[in-house]
């Protein structure tokens, strides 16, 4: 059986990802590695959602960090200002993000290509501006403390605990995304990606499908944002900023648009890379930019699709 055929079996990637989550810690010498691992899975979760939107529905969002921000500040503002339990706020945040995506998505998803990009960018900036300015609620640019998550009397604390929570949630989100792609909605989305007009001719309600996936991707980002806030114990408006959105898009494209597994690879590369590049001191930034360029020039489909194709070619 060729590797490609293996990858095409639906459940196998999920088992593979679950195995990665479980086996990796065997090689972790310290809590720092758990932290990096947890961050990879948290960002990967948001990236899976964005990948559904970009890779499958073919819609670019340059403002997705805005949803990360909504999720993050939900678990900060809810417990601090309203005394609500963190887990509840996590769900409320996700629903809120979905509702915002619904309200925003209806008008702007009609836009095409770069125009959609600038509209989503504007949305992300609006969220960041509100988070920065409403200091009474959000603590302003210095950020606000986020009370720790308590589950059944257990105060979730430490990098290893968050590694397992983020890892498990990521596997769940991963499975959900795979199933979604195999569903009628998923097939309709891929038709939209290939040609919106052709899809419409086939009788697919294009606008509605796009909106559905936008809402789902917003909820993925929101949960990731909540995790990030709870994990760090402090959240600043940077999380929702333009650079955050760009980073998410970079993770999608680097890992491979349309490859759910690529989302994990893309997130891993962009979380781990800056940690490796620190030894180059002031050349860190330049190298980061250079590496992103080199990756995109030589692996233009993204890492996972390009490597899969290369491996398949090798077999022959």
């Amino acid at each position: 059986m060729s590797l490609r055929a293996l990858l095409e079996i639906r459940l196998l990637p999920a088992i593979l990802v679950a195995a990665i989550v479980i086996i990796l810690p065997l090689f972790f010498p310290s809590a720092y590695y758990y932290r990096i691992g947890a961050l990879v899975f948290i960002f990967a979760l948001a990236v899976v959602g964005l990948n559904l939107l970009m890779g499958f529905a073919g819609q670019v969002s340059l403002g997705h960090a805005g949803f990360l921000g909504i999720g993050a500040y939900s678990v900060a503002i809810g417990p601090v200002h309203f005394g609500a339990p963190s887990w509840l706020c996590l769900f409320v945040g996700a629903i809120l993000s979905g509702a915002v995506a619904f309200a925003v998505g209806r008008p702007i998803l009609k836009l095409k290509g770069h125009y959609l990009a600038v509209a989503t960018l504007g949305f992300g900036l609006l969220v960041a501006i509100v988070l920065t300015n409403e200091a009474g609620w959000t603590g302003g640019p210095d950020g606000m403390n986020v009370p720790a998550l308590t589950l059944f009397g257990w105060r979730v604390h430490g990098s290893d605990a968050w590694y397992w929570i983020a890892g498990a949630t990521f596997v769940g989100g991963f499975l959900l995304a795979l199933n979604l792609m195999e569903s009628p909605t998923g097939r309709a989305l891929q038709a939209i990606h290939d040609s919106e007009i052709a899809a419409r001719v086939l009788g697919i309600d294009v606008a509605r499908k796009k909106l559905t996936i936008f809402i789902i991707s917003a909820m993925y980002a929101s949960v990731a944002g909540s995790f990030l806030a709870l994990f760090n114990g402090l959240i600043t408006p940077d999380v929702a900023g333009f650079l955050g959105s760009i980073e998410l898009v970079a993770m999608v494209v680097l890992g491979g648009m349309g490859s759910i597994f690529g989302s994990l690879v893309g997130a891993a590369v962009l979380v781990v890379l800056p940690q490796v590049l620190t030894i180059f001191h002031e050349y860190e930034q330049a190298l980061l930019g250079l590496i992103v360029m080199v990756f995109m020039i030589f692996l233009r489909q993204g890492i996972v699709p390009s490597v899969t194709v290369a491996l398949a070619g090798w077999r022959k």
Binding site: Q285, L290, M296, R300
Partner: peptide, 14 residues
């Protein structure tokens, strides 16, 4: 086109 935009973003960081 997204990949090309990503290259220009990489170039900007570089």
């Amino acid at each position: 086109s997204v990949a090309l935009i990503m290259i220009t973003i990489g170039a900007s960081v570089f």
